[in-house]
Nucleic acid binder design. Structure first.
Lengths: 218, 218
DNA sequence: AATTTTATTTAGATTTATCTAACTTTATTA
DNA sequence: TAATAAAGTTAGATAAATCTAAATAAAATT
């Protein structure tokens, strides 16, 4: 069994290696986990000893199969809980992340099995992220960042790659929520911001925001 | 904020002082929490420093108002989760204790508020134990142990004072579940076991078991 | 009351996860 | 490529929760 802390490290490594598809650096982990690089190094040694990561001094880490399976299971629990909070307890999508961060560490495979069943074996969470099944499998639809849409191209918002409450609240405000259809008008060369048509209203959003919104083109 | 461990100590002290209405001894806590008396003493000093308990060396402890409020809140969370597991996720009453032991430590007042609302502000959990409300209030109906019923007296099973799976499974087996009406036939003087009428069938159960079944007389 | 038993506490050690400060390795750039 | 900057590691320390073994206090018994 992994400790609460070990689970968090594995989860963070998993998320960071998803973004770069390569190895994960010590400082990146320290940043995400809000700790010191020295603490990360200590933990890397421990996780390597437990065969959960491949660790080469000064070279960063990758997850082993075992480590990846553990991480995916935590992600599965996190996303099932988020969906439960929104669907059953009527939380808003920007309120669930922190609570799920705690719930994901509750260790009862049967509980998660039952929760999955209760929710109808869902395929995605309230932010559009895929929910791995019991065996860790999930399909990641081919997604494109909103910032990469071509002029006149249309797409549906299916996910976000940033889960902070302030970001999600902002999306609610400008009506850029999951399932919304958006048409690209143009990318402003000067600052990379984008002019969009959101439900027939023309809006400009920053490059920063547009790069965290994931679309499926239609 | 209290740590996971501190919360467990407070909960155990609360439950033990309920039984004796007096102070709680070091060894009793050590026993319940499966740790050494020396560890309990260490923790008692810490909890006393935080004003959660009144601690006098060699004399045992009592909860302060603050400590009691904290303990009651944990009990509230535990019982709400147990009810959720049974009502919504279709667990059996003997399967929920261990899972609730973990869930009770998730710290989100809003989550518990919503869960309470979702469950319809219930007054008792699947074992018949009262669920404290948001302010820590609950009514403890005047209960009598099954072992104390007088011959020919009838009562309804409303709770149990033992939550082990083996005990609850046994109750299921002999059809002595919550809500069942039972009539006392006689107490066998020799071993204190009781002859009962349970749904028109005459059964004998041990003093030990009968003393853990709580009744409301009818 | 003296002795024995039981309950509790103290002292000092251990484990886990963290830290700071100093040092080493790798990467960048002038 | 030598110097500088950035990234990562090591060594030694700290806090939380636990332990064992020894000491002390309270309770029970002769």
């Amino acid at each position: 069994m992994e400790s609460y802390t070990e689970e968090n490290y594995l989860k963070v490594i998993y998320h960071l290696s998803n973004l770069t598809t390569g190895t994960v650096q010590t400082n990146a982990i320290a940043d995400k986990i809000q700790t010191r690089p020295a603490s990360v190094t200590d933990m890397m040694k421990k996780l390597a000893e437990k065969q959960l990561i491949n660790y080469i001094k000064y070279q960063g880490v990758t997850l082993t199969e075992k480590g990846k399976a553990t991480a995916v299971n935590i992600v599965r629990k996190h996303r099932l809980w988020e969906l439960f909070l929104v669907k059953t307890l009527h939380f808003k999508w920007d309120e669930v992340h922190e609570i799920a961060e705690e719930l994901e560490h509750v260790n009862s495979p049967l509980l998660i099995e039952r929760l999955d069943e209760y929710l109808g074996y869902p395929k995605s969470d309230p932010h559009g992220d895929p929910i791995p099944d019991k065996n860790g499998n999930f399909d990641s639809p081919a997604l494109i960042k909103l910032s990469k849409l071509k002029p006149a191209e249309k797409g549906i918002v299916v996910g976000v790659s940033e889960h902070s409450s302030s970001f999600l609240k902002y999306l609610d405000k400008i009506k850029l929520t999951l399932g919304t259809t958006v048409e690209m008008i143009e990318v402003i060369e000067f600052d990379g911001s984008v002019d969009l048509l959101i439900e027939d209203i023309r809006k400009n959003i920053s490059r920063e925001v547009a790069s965290h919104i994931l679309m499926r083109t239609t």
